[in-house]
Write a protein that binds this DNA or RNA. Structure first.
Lengths: 230, 230
DNA sequence: GAGTGGTCTAGACCACCAA
DNA sequence: TGGTGGTCTAGACCACTCC
């Protein structure tokens, strides 16, 4: 007899029963009370384990309906989105950046719509991020000066826009998109690659309670890969 | 006096205190016992709320060290990686696929190394996935016939390789990479786009307890964007 | 209506690790 | 080595939803 079941041991055992098809996809598994009896632990412990697996997408749970093995598991991958400085340093390189453009302008419709902006000028910033002095990523950013007027006083050549915003304008939510694009003339020029080279693009809009803060488009140097593990 | 604090209300309140800088980055926040007193609830309830925020990357917790507001929050985005069929159907389109190639071959070194394979032939499969009859994604897959010999008997024109594997060879872990690439002649031909067009690429290797199952490279049609929310 | 999961409690013991 | 978070328990009530 082992000491006592931990939620992790229960999670592992349930995972095993799923992967070995003892409990098949779509099938109802025993209730929490029954499993607690089987594993000799409290129901809360079973609950913690099953909740974890439901969060991971392997189980589907419903009150009264019971717990089922997901038929078509939607794998959930968790991506870390670090500050670019950290991202570069994590690769063992020295981070630096160059402010290329900083001006109040009227955003294009696409950006204005994404940020829910009305008429008026907003801050347009272009920054080149470098690893060991070679171009790593080109950032094209718009900052809502209505929600974040203080940025007009910031020295963005000293602290880059991203880090300034992290420090001064925490966001509560954001939309992120990942895509691929052929480098525009501007991007390729900044990154020092041929026009048309495929670049990995992250588009992000962040908000603080219904008020948009910033919209940014990051074009990574060719060869960049974002990795994760599931 | 409200009924009683739920872990979600505590999570929201802590989030508010962080975003309004009542608790500043790097700062130690009160202990669970103290917060439980303040919110008038059990420590377990506070624990649940703080654990949730720690998982999200907003707090850092250490036994004896206490709980701190993360100085440089690493945002964690959760990506859903559905079956291609579901992905297409979710966009309101009709899914179909075409098996282009299916043969036992010697995998290139890159693939062999990624899958930890020795000498010998493995199954090479190429599939074109379509939405409403137009090319959506080109899949280039290798399947380890040592770990999954049954696939040699499968009719992959009937059920595509991905769905066959989901049904017959559940995996326990996997590595995923996201990148951008210029379409090769083969990819552009299959997708019906110009050679050199930027395509979004997902590379994935899956394992079942130390044994590799499959390695796949998915090239999405230009314009594809993978979205998420944080 | 009844059975399931969702949550809270009050208490306890333990593991880790900063002081 | 003491204080913090991590976890388990036994019980309770509630909310949802299937029958």
């Amino acid at each position: 007899m082992t000491k006592s079941a931990t939620w992790q041991s229960i999670e592992a055992e349930v995972k095993r029963r799923i992967s070995e098809r003892i409990w098949k996809p779509g099938e109802l598994i025993p209730g929490e009370t029954q499993l607690a009896g089987e594993f000799g632990c409290a129901r809360a412990t079973v609950n913690r384990a099953l909740r974890q697996l439901a969060d991971a997408g392997l189980l589907e749970r419903r009150r009264k309906g019971g717990t089922r093995v997901t038929r078509y598991p939607v794998r959930k991958a968790t991506l870390d989105i670090p500050m670019t400085r950290k991202e570069v340093e994590q690769r063992g390189a020295v981070y630096s950046f160059k402010l290329l453009h900083q001006q109040l302008e009227t955003p294009p419709d696409v950006v204005g719509k994404a940020m829910g902006l009305g008429e008026g000028h907003h801050l347009h910033i272009k920054t080149l991020h470098m690893a060991n002095g070679t171009p790593f990523m080109f950032e094209d950013r718009w900052v809502n000066v209505t929600s974040t007027p203080d940025i007009l006083q910031a020295d963005l050549g000293e602290t880059n826009a991203n880090e300034w915003l992290i420090e001064h304008a925490l966001f509560t939510q954001g939309d992120i998109g990942f895509s691929a694009d052929n480098a525009t003339r501007e991007q390729s020029g900044a990154l020092g690659v041929e026009e048309g080279q495929a670049v990995f693009v992250i588009t992000r809009t962040t908000w603080n309670n219904e008020k948009s803060i910033t919209h940014v488009r990051l074009a990574y140097s060719p060869g960049f890969e974002m990795q994760t593990h599931i």
